[in-house]
């Protein structure tokens, strides 16, 4: 029985068999994309728009982000909403490292993506220099609909249907990985 094999056989044996594995991987990717739980990392004004995206009007919960988990151990995606100051950057790294794999990062707003209108001694000019970012969302602040679109793009990326800026197809998220 296929399902029993999952419990009894080793992953290497399953990989050799092929077909079950790939559709299982698609199933896992579909499940992961439709239940992205964000870790709360609201910093400034974008955090208010992130809160507003959980409104009844723009309901983020229908994308699967039912709860914004405060504990990074229970979160899949980190939405960096707001300007990241240099004092806060080590905290961001620490929270990111506490998140279990697989994890994604959405850099929300102009300040997180590029320093925004603040080009000075206090603001990190691109959050990508601190954590690897998957989706950048422009706007100051981005509308809740823009954040919703970003989550939908991330869903596509997780499922393996997304393309990067050079037209190369991005790989699907791994079902499980060794080590």
């Amino acid at each position: 029985m296929g399902l029993r094999d999952l419990f009894e056989k080793d992953v290497q044996e399953l990989e050799a068999e092929g077909i079950l594995f790939s559709s299982l991987q698609k199933l896992v990717a579909w499940g992961r994309s439709n239940s992205l739980w964000p870790a709360t990392f609201g910093l400034a004004c974008c955090a208010i728009e992130m809160m507003a995206s959980t409104n009844p009007r723009t309901d983020m919960a229908r994308m699967g982000s039912e709860v914004f988990r405060a504990s990074p151990r229970q979160a899949d995606v980190m939405i960096i909403a707001g300007r990241l100051s240099k004092k806060m950057a080590p905290v961001l790294t620490r929270v990111y490292q506490q998140m279990p794999d697989p994890k994604w990062v959405i850099s929300m707003g102009a300040c997180a993506s590029s320093g925004g209108m603040f080009n000075n001694y206090a603001i990190v000019q691109n959050v990508d220099s601190v954590v690897p970012v998957d989706i950048f969302v422009p706007g100051c602040p981005p509308r809740p609909e823009a954040l919703m679109y970003a989550v939908m793009q991330l869903q596509k990326k997780v499922k393996g249907e997304a393309f990067d800026e050079r037209g190369v197809k991005l790989p699907m998220v791994e079902g499980w990985s060794r080590g």
Binding site: L43, A44, C45, I48, R83, K87, F118, N120, Y121, I123
Partner: peptide
């Protein structure tokens, strides 16, 4: 200080009319 943005220093490098862009981002509510 975890959200220190250097607003006051930035005001010194923008004209008075451009300062309106920055003032509302301090207390965004």
């Amino acid at each position: 200080g975890y959200l220190h943005t250097g607003f006051e220093k930035t005001f010194e490098h923008r004209t008075y009319q451009q300062g309106v862009t920055y003032s509302n981002r301090m207390d965004y509510l």
